[in-house]
């Protein structure tokens, strides 16, 4: 676990240091992505999960089988959910982190992955 920096709570979008790397992993069934990496502000390792919205009528022509959504493109907005207490956090805030948020680009799917 990298050292946690107890910064004051602040909702802002810090620049991501170029040395930080984020693992963007698609789940086996293709229905969610897991982003893992260090928070640019408080340095805690943050795991952020984004699921495919399965509400609404199913968009499929062929029956049967589990529907695999198309891979996500662009980037995933991620916010810090380090779980450490940060000072100055308003009590009504649902945040579980330092308040920082940033974007993580999604790598283009590897040829082996299912689409």
């Amino acid at each position: 676990m990298p050292d946690h920096v107890p910064t004051d709570f602040r909702e802002h979008e810090p620049a991501v240091p170029p040395t930080d790397t984020f693992a963007v992993v698609r789940s086996e069934d293709g229905r969610w992505y897991t982003v893992t990496g260090p928070c640019p502000t408080c340095r805690a390792t943050v795991v952020f999960r984004v699921a495919y919205g399965v509400l609404g009528p199913p968009k499929r022509l062929l029956r049967g089988g589990r529907r695999t959504p198309e891979p996500l493109t662009g980037s995933i907005p991620v916010y810090c959910q380090c779980g450490y207490p940060h000072a100055e956090k308003p009590p009504e805030s649902p945040d579980a982190g330092c308040g920082a948020f940033w974007e993580v680009p999604v790598p283009s799917p590897a040829p082996g992955t299912t689409t």
Binding site: H12, E13, V50, P77, Y79, F101
Partner: peptide
């Protein structure tokens, strides 16, 4: 630059 809407929508998601 801080685009709080981005975070709010991420939270909504």
């Amino acid at each position: 630059m801080t685009d709080l809407a981005k975070k709010r929508f991420a939270q909504l998601g």
